[in-house]
Amino acid sequence: MMLEKTKDIARQILEEKKAGGVFGLMKNEWNIIQPHLFEDPAELANLVLEPKWLLAKLAMRILRSSPENYKLAVICRGCDERALIELIKRNQIEKENLLTVGIACSQEQAAICLCERPYPEKLDAGEKVSGVDPFQDERVQKFLTGNDKERMERWADMLKRCIKCYGCRNACPICICDPCKLEDDVWVQRGVVPTETVTFHLIRAFHLSDTCVACGACQEACPVNIPLLYLQLSMRKTLREKYGYEAGIDPETRSPVLSSVFEKPDTDREYPAWINSLGEKDES
């Protein structure tokens, strides 16, 4: 159902020339699935929606290497939509050049991803299922509870596995800085593994603190199974609870990190707990 509806929408987009191409997943005669830019409606018979395969960053690259007026439609899940919105906010994508075909994730997929919003705001096909509270998950609790020292030990133990593939950065739809902080020699020593992996990953985590959409691409790309998504969850939670802000929901709402530069800060605001989460102070 959802697949057929998505194909219909995609076909309409191509036939009515609303976009030059539809970016999604294709399954070939050998059941091989891979990203594909559909430009011919006849190819849409091979469109598939599974498995979850984040397309936002690939879509951005397609748009950035296309002629100025090329319009691209992207078949996207909730996380892809949120990532694309963040890329618009960071001036990586022209809003006018992007169309989305929003599809809903299954309850099963939401559970795998620990996803709080397993659907896009602009939903075109499929039924919304309810989100999952990641903080109820045992695996997450193992890394986010306990005192500072215990947490630091647990994380350091995980992070020292890092083999410096840069896969988390490469896969992250929002990691787009050029030059990348991880590549300037101040913080992370070149040419050595394991290196200052705690620094490496905290630089990345804080860089993304207000822009991470919890898609999990970092964690899925990690060859050594570091639960990188969990590193972002507390920061996302605090932004939501203390500032009413969530990355990727609305292209017009600025991150509080930016708005505090442009707008007068609200003096009644509390400091979020995570600011101190790796220091000496014990939260309890």
Binding site: I32, I33, Q34, P51, W53, L58, I163, K164, C165, Y166, G167, A171, E220, A221, C222, P223
Partner: peptide
């Protein structure tokens, strides 16, 4: 890019 469907690497790659 890594291949999510590959039987060995399953969406990961080294540097």
């Amino acid at each position: 890019y890594p291949d999510r469907e590959h039987p060995v690497s399953r969406g990961s790659l080294c540097i």
